[in-house]
Simulated scan of single mutants.
Amino acid sequence: MRDVFAALCNAANAGRPCLFTALVETRGSTPQKAGAAMLVFADGAQIGTLGGGCVEAEVKRRALERITVGGPELMTFQLDSDYGWDDGLICGGRMKMLVDAIRPGNDLSYYRACSERATAGQGFTQAVILEDHPDAPPGSQFLFDVAGSLLASRPAGLPPESVGENLRSISSRPRPYVVSGVTYLPSLPRCRLIIVGAGHVGQKTAELAADVDFDVWVIDDREEYCSPERFPRAQQLIAGPIGRELKALETTPDDFLVIVTRGHNHDEEALYRLIGKPFRYLGMIGSRRKIRMIFDDLRKEGVSPSALERVHAPLGFDIGSQTVPEIAVSIVSQLIAVRNRGESVSTVHALRDTVRAASGT
């Protein structure tokens, strides 16, 4: 979504017509869920996706018919044999799309506000009118911040009172929903992932985490490892003694913390420094024997059993990982589960055990 909004603003600045298409409502089985967005240009080029396949091609075809018209339109697609014949995939659901043709000279304050929020990693909710309403035509869009304050609208104007009344708090991490003919498309704030350890596992984990929209920080005592060359997409690199840097580090209840250092002693010190800080997720790599020894040491240092129960150790889903990329996949998969679904430690461990049982390991 961030890339789509940024590309839309860049195209408008260059005087290049384009079409913003967004999946605003789904019913039944569909290849993509509400909230997906795609930008289409006159030559058929696109940024983003609505799920691929024939239905995406049909959205592009119908959208391009409007590129000289301008303004929004709602389009409905029934996923029957019309859109699944070529690959045998007939979902049977229904997808409703918002198609907004952006022309040179259009007021882009709404999309610029969306782009600014998305780029900054701040949460917001878009509300789109789906049905006839006396105070706003179908396709009208309203942008709200995390506090529920109106930031922008397209076209300009105030939303119907009921739109604000049905707005759900971003803190509850809602998924897209429809109430009284209005669809609500929440974009959750980006989360910070602090990786302690800049070795091979830390490097690959950082790469994958950036791909799935975490803001990555890396901490290591080796400056030659904790470098922009190895972590080109990191938001922050901190090179220095691990204990000192973690002691000074300020965290929030939304932060994700991953300990993947090169040795037992560094892992233990990192966990000792982090376990008393606020976080949403704290995980540590290692064998069960190593983890048991570290937990025993921390109990002797006065760390409570209840605090240790909040630690994902060993971190990551058990997928039989052997290589560094596989280990990173298992870690980032678990981070996504906690971020997107609010999984608790017990739930994640239950899922891990289910995966292990299914694989026969």
Rank of each mutant, 00 (worst) to 15 (best):
Q236C: 13
G342F: 10
T68M: 04
E326K: 13
E56Q: 09
D135C: 05
P137W: 04
A350P: 09
P17V: 03
C9R: 14
L208V: 13
R94E: 15
L167G: 10
T30R: 05
E269L: 14
G148D: 00
E223P: 07
E245T: 15
S29R: 11
D107N: 12
L274P: 05
G342Q: 03
Q322G: 15
C18A: 15
F124N: 07
S172M: 13
D100P: 01
L143A: 06
R154D: 04
C9T: 14
I336M: 06
C191G: 09
D86N: 06
A209K: 00
F144C: 06
A313P: 12
H266R: 14
E58M: 01
P31F: 02
Y225F: 15
A6Y: 08
A14I: 07
N106P: 01
S29Q: 01
P232W: 06
T183W: 07
P174R: 12
D3Q: 14
V163R: 04
P155D: 03
A12Y: 15
P305C: 11
G148I: 02
E161L: 06
G44I: 06
D211C: 09
T26F: 00
I90C: 13
H349N: 14
S321G: 02
S346Q: 13
Y111Q: 05
E73N: 13
M284E: 08
A206P: 05
G51W: 04
F256A: 04
D215H: 14
I327E: 10
N13L: 07
L150P: 04
A12K: 15
G53I: 02
R16A: 08
E309G: 08
F256Y: 15
K277A: 03
P228K: 00
A14G: 11
